[in-house]
Each structure stands twice: as C-alpha cells, then as structure tokens.
Design a protein around this nucleic acid. Structure first.
Length: 523
DNA sequence: TAGCTGGTTGGGCAA
DNA sequence: ATTGCCCAACCAGCT
C-alpha cells in the first residue's frame, strides 16, 4: 500500500531526527510537506517581529532542504480544521503524519484534525520527538502526577533509561519512489509570505543575531561542540547574565522551533562528555535539557499550568493590577539601568540570559512591582525567540515563587545582582546605546527597592500562610483533587480526567489501576 | 508519621 | 578575591 501523504510541520521544523517524517516516507507515493499559519498561534499577541523573522527563516531553510530532496514546502493560511479537509480532497490524501505536541491548544487542535482525517479515510501517524521522553510515561511512572522537584524528575528519568537516539535525516535515496507534485505557480499558491505581510509591527527590526533554520542550528551546535573543555565544564549558575556576548549556547530558540532536536543535542553532548570529567545535572548542559523535560512534564500533568487561578500547585497571591508600572517594565523605563538594559536587549534581540530573566521577573513580581507573573509571561512569549509555552509558564511560576521554588525571601536586587558580573556597567552602556527608549531622558527609579522588597517578602509570607491553611482544611486540594461538598466524594484533577478520556488524539489512554491506588486522596 | 534535608543561580557583612 | 554566616523560615520528598 502506498500513500498520498501530508507531513504536517508545526514545531519540529527540521529534517534530522524527524521520525514522523520518516514514517511518511516509508510507504509514500506523493509527499506534501505542509506548514499552516494558524491565526490562533501566529498573531500579534504571540508573535513579535523577532519571532516572525525567526519563523520565516526556519520556513525558508526547510523549503531549501526539501528542494534538495526534490520536494517543496507548502505554506497555507487558516485554521487547521478548515485547511486540512480541503487538502485531503484536493490531493487525494490517505495519510497524515506529524510530531506529537503536548500543549493544551495543540492537543485539542490535533484531536479535531485527527477526527476530520478519519472521516476522510486518512490514516494518522504521530511520533514523539519534541522532548527527550514521552511525558505521559514520565507521569505514569510517577504515579499519575507530574514530579514537582528536579530531583524527583531525575529519579523518574533514571528509571526510564537514557533518551532514544535521534533518527537520521532523509536522503535522496529515500526519495527514489517519491515525488512532490508542485506547479510553476507554487510560490504564488504556497510560498512563504514575506515578513512585512505577516507582521503588523512597522518598526524596523534590529540586527538578526540568531537567524532561524535547521542548517544554522546544526552549524551552531557544531561550533559549540568543538569546545569540548567548555562543554564539559559548563555550570549554568557560573555563567553571566550580562556579558557582552552570550555566555551560554543560545541554542534554545532552535530547540523551541524544533530546528534542533533535543535528542540530537543530548547525544552530541554525551559524545563530548565521553572519557572526560564533566559537570552534572542540574547545572550541566545535559542538566539544561532535563530542566526542559521537567517543565514539559509539569505542563502536561498540572491543569491550568500557565495560570494562577485553577492551578493546584500555584500559590494564590493578591497581585496588584498596575498598567502603568507594567508598561514601564515592558518598555524598559523603570529607572533601574540593569533592569531596563535587560528589557532593551529582550526587545532588540529576542534573547536574554536566563539569570537576566530572573532579575526582571523577580522585579516585576515578588521583588518590586507586585504584578501578576501572567503579565510577564505574555510579554516574554511575544518577545522571546525561545518563548516556549511550557518553559515560559514554568519559569514564571518558579521565579515568582508560585510553584517549584519557595524560598521567597531570596530576592534579586535590581542593582546589586548585575554588579557581580559587570562592575563597570559595560552591558548597561551597550544596551543604552542600542535602545530606542532608554536614553537621555533617563527616568528616576519607579520604586524604592530597599523599602518595597522587604514589604513584599511579608506579603509573600501571608500568601504562603494562606496556602498552607487552605491545604490543611482541604488536603485534596493540594493534589489538585476536588471534593464534592454534597456527597463528600473526591474527583480527580482535570489532567487525570483528560487522560481517562484519551488525551492523545486518536488513542484512548485509560487511567491505570496503579495510578488510582497510589493516590492517597482516594483511599 | 513526624522530623529532617536539600533546594541550578540572594544580599550583605565579616574575616 | 573568596568563603562562611546570618537574615528568617518556604516546600516536596525522603526516611
């Protein structure tokens, strides 16, 4: 049986380690590589100019690589549930392949598309290759709950064994029996739209420091892997948030869009470690990839993960709503040079160091401005090239001391923290020169840090006191379980409910007896 | 079970 | 320059 097959690119914008694509090529006659500009994801709320530019770079690189396989990329606009039925008919499609994606929107979208595919007699195949591990397996192994500490996560992953090896990219030989039917009008019909057509932002973007695409990703990976000693010695907390050139790899945007496979990255690192003394998780480069797994598992296992209300692991805090302070933070005019320099770099380059993210996130939330971390999350999502749904939410939960991290009395100083690694303020000078907002009219600090951060620690203390008293009244609540006040029966958290009804599109995944028994709330 | 330990990355001061 | 302690005292997971 040979198929007319669509491979649907969403994340996973690469040919290497793409098992779903390999599955498509195995029994394929006509191949249609497709990317859909879904307005739910690709709109001005989610996409700043730098993200748009990165995505366009990825798509051009993908099309270029596909041409080398005598194929092409087909770019379409619209909601996937509208686009695919038309394509199924138009191209007489019999098989659809894609990479599994655990984001809530993706799961519901893929569920709908799978249903439509089945209605059109189209076989659907998906593969896990965005993460090192199968997140549902991780949660199953931890008795149906997401691990809440890195140590616990490590123990679970150890029991699952090392990640799978990446699969090779398709070659011309693999394409011998396969063709992609495209016409002379391909550019007009299915070409990649120019940046100006996609992005409302009229301001000219800055220098493109991190061009998108798989080729660039693999080139950068090679460059870093040449420095074996640096790779082996890498300890994240020792890297600098305000060095003039990045003190880390900046491979995260490439992993986010799937230009670089996390498994390829993992096994290249393993090769570099081989026979050498090297650092270990959580601070090593392997450790960084495991943090990603940690947050992905949390995002799958915890309901309302990117929100405060309805998120069972999130401390409920009476954050202020203050649009003026929020705008000052977002637009790099807080009057704290270190904070404003970081926000300037974020807006200009789309990337800032992890510890710089800590500094500005702490400042926005529990440190100074007392603004809900969800507001910061939105800003980061739009501006960061590596704005990843699970990692962004997880890190904001962490930094605001809402979940995972609870030592809220450890507060970053918006002045002192930067001075540790940049005594002369060189980073601030560079960003002031580059920034369009920070400049001659440098404002006064919008808050008095010394006073307000102590007051805020007390406010956090109150929020935590409320948190533990709530947990004492209703121990089930802490686990995300709700108790029906009328009957007194406990109901599972939404995540477990959706698992029962089959969270993966096209597959029913029953809640196991083990996971039920191990939840003490039921017993 | 209750107590203990560790937690990728704080600041500020003393020695 | 680096280390160690205090500040006040959190949670999750382990024993």
């Amino acid at each position: 049986m040979t198929h007319n097959c669509i491979h649907w690119f969403r994340k996973g914008l690469r040919l290497h380690d793409n098992p779903a694509l390999v599955s498509a090529l195995r029994d394929c006659k006509d191949l249609y590589p497709v990317f859909v500009l879904d307005p739910h994801l690709y709109n001005s709320d989610h996409m700043g100019i730098n993200r748009w530019r990165f995505l366009v770079g990825c798509l051009h690189d993908l099309d270029c690589s596909l041409r080398k396989l005598k194929s092409r990329l087909f770019v379409l606009r619209g909601h996937p549930e509208d686009v695919f039925p038309e394509l199924f008919k138009k191209w007489d499609v019999t098989k659809l392949t894609y990479e599994y994606d655990t984001e809530p929107y993706s799961l519901s979208r893929d569920g709908k598309v799978t249903e439509l595919a089945e209605r059109h007699g189209v076989e659907v195949v998906y593969k896990i290759s965005h993460t090192l591990y199968d997140m549902d397996r991780v949660i199953e192994e931890n008795n149906g709950k997401a691990p809440l500490t890195y140590n616990r996560m490590q123990a679970i992953l150890k029991s699952l064994g090392p990640p799978k090896k990446p699969v090779p990219a398709p070659t011309l030989e693999d394409m011998n029996e396969i063709k992609t039917p495209y016409t002379e009008n391909h550019e007009e019909e299915y070409g990649i739209p120019p940046l100006g057509e996609l992005c409302e932002d009229t301001a000219a973007p800055g220098e493109e420091k991190f061009p998108g695409g798989e080729e660039e990703a693999l080139r950068r990976l090679d460059e870093h892997m040449k420095r074996t000693a640096w790779v082996c010695k890498f300890e994240k907390p020792q890297t600098s948030p305000n060095s003039l050139s990045p003190s880390t790899t900046v491979l995260s945007p490439y992993v986010t869009f799937g230009c670089l496979s996390a498994r390829t990255f993992w096994w290249r690192l393993a090769g570099g470690y081989q026979g050498n003394k090297h650092s270990s998780p959580p601070v090593s480069l392997h450790g960084q990839l495991l943090w990603r797994e940690f947050y992905y598992a949390a995002s799958v296992g915890i309901p309302n993960f990117n929100k405060m209300v309805g998120n069972p692991v999130c401390t409920q805090v009476d954050w202020d709503s203050n649009p003026e302070l929020l705008a000052a933070w977002r637009e790099a005019r807080t009057g704290f040079p270190f904070i404003d320099a970081i926000m300037t770099q974020l807006r200009q380059e789309g990337w800032i160091h992890h510890l710089a993210r800590h500094a500005v996130a702490c400042f926005l939330t529990r440190g100074d401005l007392w603004i809900n971390w969800e507001e910061g999350q939105k800003v980061f999502e739009k501006l960061l090239l590596d704005g990843d749904w699970a990692l962004n939410a997880g890190n904001w939960l962490w930094l605001s001391a809402s979940a995972f991290f609870h030592q809220f009395f450890r507060v970053y100083s918006p002045v002192a923290f930067g001075k540790k690694t940049d005594k002369n303020g060189d980073y601030i000078n560079v960003q002031q020169a580059a920034g369009c907002i920070v400049g001659k009219d440098y404002p006064q600090p919008i808050v008095k840090h010394e006073e307000i951060h102590k007051k805020n620690i007390q406010r956090m203390k109150l929020a935590y006191a409320k948190r533990s008293s709530d947990a004492a009244v209703s121990p089930n609540k802490k686990q995300g379980w709700t108790t029906d006040t009328a009957t007194g029966t406990a109901a599972p958290p939404p995540a477990a409910t959706s698992l029962m009804s089959g969270q993966r599109p096209g597959r029913v995944q029953p809640l196991t007896l083990t996971s039920l028994n191990s939840n003490t709330a039921l017993l």
